[in-house]
Simulated scan of single mutants.
Amino acid sequence: MKLGFHLGYWSAAPPEGAHDAFALAESLGYDSVWTAETYGSDCLTPLAWFGASTRTVSLGTNILQMSARTPAATAMAAMTLDHLSGGRFILGLGVSGPQVVEGWYGQPYPRPLARTREYVELVRKIVRREAPVSHDGQFYQLPLQGGSGLGKPLRSMLHPRRSEIPIYLGAEGPKNIALAAEIADGWLPLFYSPRMDDFYRGALEEGFAQPGARHSLDDFEIAATVPIVVDDDIEKAADLVRPNIALYVGGMGAKEANFHNQVFVRMGYEAECERIQQLYLDGRKAEAIASVPLAMVEDIALVGSVEKIRDDLRRWDKTVVTSLLLQGLGYSSIHTVAKLLE
Score class of each variant (00 low, 15 high):
Met296Thr: 08
Glu118Tyr: 14
Ala48Val: 14
Ala209Tyr: 08
Ser27Leu: 09
Gln277Asp: 09
Leu84Trp: 00
Pro110His: 11
Ile276Trp: 08
Gln65Arg: 06
Tyr269Lys: 05
Asp185Lys: 00
Asp231Tyr: 06
Pro293Gly: 07
Asp42Cys: 08
Gly8Val: 11
Asn261Gly: 08
His335Trp: 14
Ala21Val: 11
Ser323Gly: 06
His135Pro: 02
Ala224Pro: 02
Ala12Tyr: 11
Arg128Ile: 04
Phe22Ile: 04
Leu204Ala: 05
Val297Arg: 00
Val120Tyr: 00
Leu59Trp: 04
His83Trp: 07
Asp20Leu: 03
Ala209Ser: 13
Leu64His: 05
Phe199Tyr: 12
Val241Glu: 02
Leu340Met: 11
Met196Asp: 14
Pro14Glu: 05
Glu206Asp: 08
Trp10Asn: 05
Arg69Ala: 01
Glu118Pro: 01
Ala180Val: 05
Leu158Met: 12
Ala257Cys: 13
Asp239Tyr: 15
Gln107Thr: 06
Ala52Ile: 00
Asn176His: 14
Leu7Gln: 09
Leu81Phe: 01
Gly149His: 04
Gln277Ser: 13
Ala48Met: 10
Leu59Ile: 06
Gly17Tyr: 05
Ala178Pro: 01
Asp232Glu: 11
Leu84Thr: 02
Gly330Val: 13
Lys285Met: 12
Gln327Glu: 10
Val120Asp: 06
Gly268Arg: 08
